[in-house]
Each structure stands twice: as structure tokens, then as C-alpha cells.
Design a protein around this nucleic acid. Structure first.
Lengths: 135, 135, 135, 135
DNA sequence: GTGGTCTAGACCACC
DNA sequence: GTGGTCTAGACCACG
């Protein structure tokens, strides 16, 4: 379910939280689904349990999962949460847009930025990083 | 040069800084142009000199103008500043866009938000507000 | 037994659950007492049976009542439940108090907050009052 | 400035964030004061830098400090923040109080809880901690 | 030098 | 078994 990209400059824990958020928001992981245990997930990705722990802590702090000590972590009910979050996001977005205009960036230009694919999305492309999987 | 909008919910000093930023960024006020003195500007707008003072302080803090004691305030050289600012802004923008996608907001939807005029911008237009369209 | 307050901003079902919780906690409705049927209660309050249904579901989920299909709903044995709940509540309370102190709110100030009646509490008293003092 | 209490069951990083919050809220550490570096603070307390790192991350997330990479962490301007936080806190407090009343806990009883010294507060008295004033 | 991330391995409390 | 905390030590990017 989770794939790590070591070429991505974002930290691992952030890739993990992002991916799980996506799965939860899209409903692929429904409410109350048990998350993989910290240790099993760490083994499956061949990384340190602490990294998973950190990712899960973030997810819990942001309301995407809830934790019962000794039992595990579970997908939270985000139905109410999402609406609020989106409103909050829109406010921030509009504020940033206005600020950008003050810097002389036109809305048209912003539109072009939106159309851009995310950097790092087509990883293999030009340089390909050479040694990649060396470790 | 500056017009205040008392319907705007933003504080006056913010309207003023915003407007001056725009004028400076667009090159209408070129580098080293002398800014109107605090007192004259205050009189011209019929507001308290403290408000102008605060606006100028903000502008100076943000690097748009510089002040020589006893002489007045002048438009700063923003050629270098602007590039950095824009880069910084773009980073923030792209980060916010990605965050929005995680909340399930499509880039298309963001585009629509961009197309919308900011609220408060057209106050005169829609309701027509009586005679204000005159200017 | 139940009085609705349409001036209250809380949803009706929440007013109902709250009131029943009070009645059960205070022992006015002892263990195994049969609850009014959904339909009769709805009629008595002149509201939609779904609202009562939802209130009862909440009460059941929280352990205040239990339901026997085809027979009705009955007040549960809360003797054990209440102790746990209270302990849990006290933990939360003490945690919140400490957090408040970190924000610079003194315990004395908190005491004053306690002395205040909650807003909206007296609305019913003034006008309607009705049978509330009955027990 | 910071003293750790190993008898306290709270995690170390939480003791540290709490103590710094207090120092910042009380104004003992004014705005823009540089925080001790992660490594120096860790050495001074004889604990692992990761623990300090975690504490500082929390403080930054909560708006008490800001960080400039490669430069250090600094006390943030909390003047605006505090008011909002307190309002938010009061809402939570009043909600919890109401919930407590539903559980049959009187406001008087809550008042008594407020008067209680925090548990773990007196520990130092008995043993006196020995020679802590060393620095 | 600074903060930030990650690993490896340990111990605790909870259920 | 589960999550949560902590240590020790490493490497990175930034300035």
C-alpha cells in the first residue's frame, strides 16, 4: 500500500503521512480500519520503527487516525473534519493569492503553476541520478 | 495615488502598505523616488499621521522603502528582493497546492478559485451601491 | 419528563440525551426502568420519531440504556460505568487545568469561571419553568 | 533554567516544552531571545539531543518559538497568540464542566479539584533533590 | 556551527 | 502483542 521513494527529497515520515492521508481521504481506508502495526509496517518497508511511529503520531495529531494503547491505531472518522479543513485551506489559499498579486504575480501565472506537474513526479527522467539503488 | 476604502475590513495601514507595494512592484514608483511625507500623506487622506507612520514602518521592514532621518522615506531597490520574494512565494504556493490535493481539492478546482475575483474587490459592482461607480 | 428548548442552539437529540443522562445519573430513572417508546415520546414532544431514535442510539452507545428488540429500551446499570467515567473526566479536567495554567490562567480565575452559570441555562427558567422542579 | 524531574511520569520532552512555555508566557524569555542550541541544551541536561529536538519541534508547532535553519531557534512573538489560545481554552473548559455536571459532578466539587495541589508537586520537598544548584 | 532526519536497539506501560 | 519514550550515534543541508 505504501511505496517509498528514496529519490524524493521529502523525509520518509512525510511521504508516509501524505500517502496515508490520501488513502483515508479517498475512502480507500474506511473509518475504524486498523492500521498496520508500527513494527510490521516498518518491517514491510525495511525502515526503522521510529520513522513509522513518527508518521503515525503526525496522523493522529492531525485527526486522521486514533490510537488505543496496547491495541493499535485505527482510521478516524474524518467526515466532519474534512469540511472544516477545506474551508481553512481556501482562506489560506486566497490570502496567498492576494499576496502573490502584490508581488506582481498575475492570476494567469498562478494558473500556469497549477498546471505544472509536481516536481519529482516523473522521477526517472533526465539525469536519473546515476547510482540510485546502490545501498 | 492612494485611495482608502472604508468598506474594506482590513485596517487602513494595511490598505496603504498594500497599495504602495503594488505601485513599487509595478515600477510606477521607481527606485529612490521620495515618498510623500508622513504628515502630508496623512492630511491628504484625512487620517491620523500615526497610521501613515505605521504603514511606512511596515514597508521599511519589508524592504520596499528606506528612510533617511531628517530627509524622508524613499523607494528602495527591490530588483533583487523581488526575485527572492517570488521564489519564496512560489514555494509556499506549491506546498499549499499539494496540501490541498491531500484534502481532496483538485487542481482544477483551485483554478476556479483563481478565476474568482477576491471578495470585497467588486463591492461597488454587484450591488451597485449607488453612485460609487462614478470615479 | 423532557422539555425541549427551541432557543437552545444545540440539536434536539442532544438536549434529549443530556436530559435523560441527568435523570439516569441522579437515579430518578432507576436501573431497568422502561424508557418511553420512540413513537410515544416523539408524539409527546411533537417531533420526528427519528430524532428520538437518534437520541436513544446515542444513549445506548454510551451505555446509559440497553435495548431489547421487540420489547423496548431500558435504563442500564450505570453503577460501574459512572465511576470509570468520572475518573476519566477528572483526568481530562486536571489536564485541562494544567494546560490553562501554562497559558497564564490562574486557578483562581478558573474558579470564577466555575461560579458563572452557563449561558443559555436560564432561558427556560424565566419564561417556562413548567414541571421541571417536580422531583 | 530547566530542571528535569525523573520521578515525574511525564516524558522528558513534555517537561521541557511545559517549562519553556511557562518561561515564554511569563515573559522571562522575551521575544526573539535565542534558545539554547539543541546540542548544548542536551549536554546541559545530560540527555539525548533527540529529546531536546522533539521538545523544540513541539514548541515551534505550537507557535512559541521559530526556527531559522543553520542559525538556531528563537522565542516567537506570542502577544496575539495568547488571547486566541485563552478563548479556545475557555470554550473547552466550559464544555468539560457541563459534561461533568451530566456525570453528576457538582461545580462545588470541581472547585475542590481546582484547589488541589497538582500531584507530583511536592515530591521535591521530601528528598530535596540534592545538589541541583550546581550550574 | 545550526537544526532535521534516520537507524538500531532498549525499556516501559497497557491489554 | 501494541504504542510511546529515550539513547547513542550517524548523516544531511544550510550558512
Amino acid at each position: 500500500m505504501i511505496v517509498l521513494d528514496y529519490r524524493d527529497r521529502r523525509p520518509l515520515y512525510e511521504q508516509i503521512t501524505g500517502r496515508f492521508q490520501e488513502l483515508i481521504v479517498k475512502g480507500i481506508l474506511p473509518k475504524d480500519t486498523q492500521m498496520p502495526s508500527v513494527r510490521s509496517q516498518a518491517m514491510q518497508l525495511s525502515i526503522n520503527p521510529n520513522t513509522i511511529q513518527r508518521a503515525y503520531s503526525e496522523l493522529e495529531r492531525e485527526g486522521y487516525i486514533y490510537t488505543i494503547k496496547g491495541r493499535g491505531s485505527f482510521v478516524a472518522d474524518i467526515s466532519g473534519l474534512l469540511g472544516e479543513r477545506r474551508e481553512e485551506w481556501k482562506k489560506q489559499f486566497m490570502a496567498l493569492v492576494e499576496e502573490g498579486q502584490l508581488l506582481g504575480i498575475s492570476r494567469q501565472e498562478m494558473g500556469r503553476l497549477l498546471a505544472l506537474p509536481e516536481p519529482g513526479d516523473m522521477e526517472g527522467k533526465i539525469e536519473d541520478k546515476g547510482g540510485d539503488g546502490s545501498d
